[in-house]
Design a protein around this nucleic acid. Structure first.
Lengths: 358, 358
DNA sequence: TTGTAAGCGTTATCAG
DNA sequence: CTGATAACGCTTACAA
């Protein structure tokens, strides 16, 4: 593919190439400067006389020259790239997170590349590998699931990383922790105050540490109120709508139905709500329903869902801040921030037992 | 940053660098082969004896070596990167599209980088520029808006491109066209058959060609049925929820309210629905409501929305197919496919004028 | 089947 | 302030 040269001869032959890319050398020639000056101009170095810079910029403009990013990062050792890995792009929680992260990164003139694992550890590993090949300057691992081999890779390559809500003991990484406890406490209190005692919980997938944490907190808070979830009312979902649907069907089939249902995330609650409606029942008349996340669409439902809010833009901001700090190498050791959750009360919760009305 | 050499002397000095990256040369040394052989092994070239390859792979594995993507694409002239540009990542229509596109691309071992324009032409240009710097092998321009300067850049750089739903006359690009006509015809027919004659339309932003097209088709189909939209019932939205809310408020304030409302997209319809509910009115009792797109969440609403479906995975598949064809250079000229839309009837539409019930 | 070495397009060092 | 030129890490002709 490259040109070839007859050693020992002054003659140089070039293979005729279709590739017609412009490069810094061409610009240099046309602007009657050296490649170094073009490079400096491109990088806004103050070492270039303004008059020269203007001339160079004109040539660049006229020819529509676009610098080669690969060459740049190869030579400079910087990629100016940040990697963000999420679990499920079709869960509205994540586009929001991404959107904020990207906007903030752009302000720091970092570009962001994304990967979607779809909760699959294998895809996580792949994504990580690809990002490492691109020599990203930092990685925000915003998946709810974690995967040891993947974390090991990260550690080994010493890439600045920030994780979301990783288990408490582990402190090998910078972490943005979301404090589910507070929001869950408020949610449980809210239901208890309304008079509910038979409360169901639809959990997330058991493989997800954060989901297990939510479940444990719910049970603990309930216990704190001298309540407990009947085994038949503790159902495993999958953090998707279909899981909520399935779980709710199971609950509807019960003789002793709960009066309130807590869900491990909003998508699950949405599935439950749909199922309730399809059974010609109503919320909050027949069931009080509480979600988790506060994705935009829950406020559009009828009734609008009461839910525990996880502030996504705060997470994005904290994650980026920590990442930049880690990248600058200024931070002594691993860092950690905690983001608070809070209950947003809307119309899907009410007092139980008004079944005789209508 | 780089090493330096005393010319005219056989002695070579290297600057002591902190950067401790592994490279192909190190692997070659440890595996007692040349760099070429390592490269070939990396690229699964059949020119390497299996026994040698195994040895090389072992060293790579042991050292945890990760090839440098920038160097690879600089040298090979291929980036194996596809760029996808969308308008609004928080509109569920797009994550779905992206998700499909990414999955399909991965099967062809292409990586995908995304950009979100947020309907801003300036951001579009930026995104394009960044992708060009990365030397993407192809671009899928899936924004609903277009922007002449941006298109000009694309044309000039001769990057294989596929656009979504660009205006009909323009044929400088490969295009995946979505045929709104059929779906809209069915939607209008459906409403007319139900007995509606006072029909409102909440359009998309006037700057969006595809939105104008939808509006024109709606008006045309209505005219075909000897109906027309009263000026007060033709309201401009913005393809977001808040636009639907605002438009619906305007409609509710009318003395002569419409009995059915067509919306330019689902998000708009969702806003309208929310507003209707807040006014203690019901769908389809007080208003029949029709959306456009068929994003997942509309089937979760109560009532589930009747809408015109745009098949997103089909769009993704067609776009990728066309892009790959264009990239291979096998296609004679510009190509074009048309994707059909169809009406999905759910519970948000019904006969008008049952106001006396309840 | 393997090795040698010339590029790929930049950046950054060093010498003016 | 500017220029010459050695890296950066890899791929790929070409030679062996």
């Amino acid at each position: 593919m490259h040109g070839s040269e007859h050693t020992g001869s002054s003659q140089v032959r070039y293979v005729n190439m279709e590739r017609n890319e412009m490069n810094i050398a061409l610009i240099a020639r046309k602007a009657r400067v050296s490649t170094a000056t073009v490079s400096r101009t491109l990088n806004h170095s103050p070492l270039v006389r303004e008059k020269t810079a203007v001339r160079v910029r004109k040539v660049i403009e006229d020819l529509g020259y676009i610098p080669n990013g690969s060459a740049r990062s190869l030579s400079s050792g910087r990629s100016n790239l940040l990697g963000v890995i999420i679990s499920d792009i079709t869960n509205p929680f994540f586009p929001d997170l991404i959107s904020s992260f990207e906007r903030l990164s752009a302000e720091q003139s970092y570009e962001v590349i994304f990967a979607n694992t779809n909760y699959d550890p294998e895809r996580l590993e792949h994504a990580l590998l690809r990002m490492m090949q691109r020599r990203v300057d930092g990685i925000a691992l915003m998946t709810s699931e974690m995967h040891e081999p993947a974390l090991a890779m990260l550690k080994k390559q010493k890439i600045p990383t920030v994780t979301l809500q990783h288990r408490i003991e582990e402190s090998d990484f910078n972490t943005v922790r979301v404090d589910h406890r507070i929001g869950i406490r408020k949610a449980v209190q809210h239901l208890v105050e309304l008079g509910h005692s038979n409360i169901a919980f639809i959990s997330g997938p058991g493989a997800l540490w954060s989901a297990n944490q939510r479940r444990d907190f719910v049970l603990a808070e309930l216990a704190h109120n001298k309540l407990k979830v009947a085994p038949s009312c503790l159902i495993e979902g999958n953090h998707r709508v279909d899981g909520g649907v399935a779980a709710m069907k199971t609950l509807l089939a019960l003789k002793d139905r709960p009066t309130a249902i807590l869900c491990s995330n909003d998508l699950t609650a949405l599935g439950a709500l749909k199922t309730i409606h399809e059974a010609n029942l109503e919320v909050p008349r027949d069931f009080s329903l509480v979600g988790f996340d506060d994705i935009d669409m829950v406020s559009l439902m009828h009734p609008a869902l009461t839910t525990v809010r996880i502030p996504r833009s705060e997470i994005a901001a904290e994650a980026l801040t920590m990442l930049l700090a880690a990248m600058s190498g200024l931070t002594p050791r691993m860092q950690e921030t905690t983001i608070e959750t809070r209950l947003v009360i809307r119309q899907s919760t009410g007092a139980p037992g008004k079944k005789h009305k209508k």
